[in-house]
Design a binder for these strands. Structure first.
Length: 272
DNA sequence: GATGAGCGT
């Protein structure tokens, strides 16, 4: 027989209202700030904060074939941003099916990203367009949203040529950084300002990716010292993360190995 | 100041 108390539980596991305390956050973290300049497009969020025109940050194009893709990936989460926080942010859409923050199994600490599933692909896309790159309710950082990858490979055939950009002012966002470069380098694909997960604030450096190697090279010299927002950028080579950007070290490794070998050999020779 | 971040049961 059914337990009386458990009969009419909320459909979603999140239905049970979360006790809303997010670390240092005061009582109502979700109070959406009034739209700065927003005339609400009144599609699905009549009365709410419609963020400034979502900058066209690079996102994976929506997979056309897969009807099932209704989930967004969200990153750059601070540790205190848990399911209930995310859930309440998108609550007004009425179309959130589930929310999940990925945690480390040992420490149970957030890994800084999660997934938001909507009841339709269109709903997910609206959220993606409207929120991505706009300030999160806590005010410190911007939403970093994208389509969740469904295990299928992302269409990413082209190599990236990346540079490191330092000395960024506090107000430089991905969008600002990217536009700074895209104005001169059409192959500029994306820009990312690195965010401190503890504070949600910028670390003052970032990465810019180009599709064209010669533009990467040119940008390295031409853009060094150029103003971005209020500060001159300092540009350097990016440590090889995603290949492409710089030369492989295959030869270097061999040299290192052989010279190590030499050291060993000479050590043997030196020994009595 | 100083080299990310990225897909779960």
């Amino acid at each position: 027989m059914m337990q009386p108390g458990a009969g009419g539980v909320a459909p979603s596991a999140l239905g049970q209202q979360p006790a809303q305390q997010y670390g240092q956050q005061p009582a109502q973290p979700y109070m959406m700030m009034p739209p700065p300049t927003a005339q609400a497009p009144a599609m699905w969020a009549p009365q709410s904060h419609v963020a400034p025109p979502a900058p066209q940050l690079p996102q994976h194009s929506q997979p056309a074939s897969a009807d099932e893709v209704r989930t967004l990936w969200i990153g750059d989460l601070q540790y205190w941003m848990e399911e209930n926080y995310l859930y309440n942010i998108f609550l007004h859409t009425g179309e959130v099916v589930s929310v999940k923050v990925i945690r480390n199994k040992q420490t149970c600490q957030s890994e800084g990203y999660g997934f938001i599933e909507f009841n339709s692909r269109a709903a997910a896309e609206r959220v993606l367009q409207a929120f991505n790159g706009t300030p999160m309710p806590n005010g410190a950082q911007n939403f970093r949203l994208n389509w969740a990858s469904t295990g299928e490979k992302r269409s990413d055939d082209t190599p990236d040529y990346t540079i490191f950009v330092g000395d960024l002012a506090a107000d430089v966002t991905d969008y600002v950084l990217q536009e700074t470069f895209r104005a001169r380098y059409p192959s500029c694909k994306s820009a990312k300002v690195v965010i401190d997960r503890l504070t949600g604030r910028t670390k003052g450096y970032g990465f810019v990716k180009f599709g064209d190697e010669s533009e990467q090279m040119r940008a390295m010299t031409e853009m060094n010292g150029v103003l971005c927002s209020t500060r001159p950028m300092r540009i350097g080579p990016a440590a090889n993360k995603n290949a492409g950007g710089s030369q492989q070290y295959s030869n270097g490794c061999q040299e290192a190995l052989s010279s190590k070998g030499q050291i060993l050999i000479s050590a043997e020779m030196v020994s009595p």
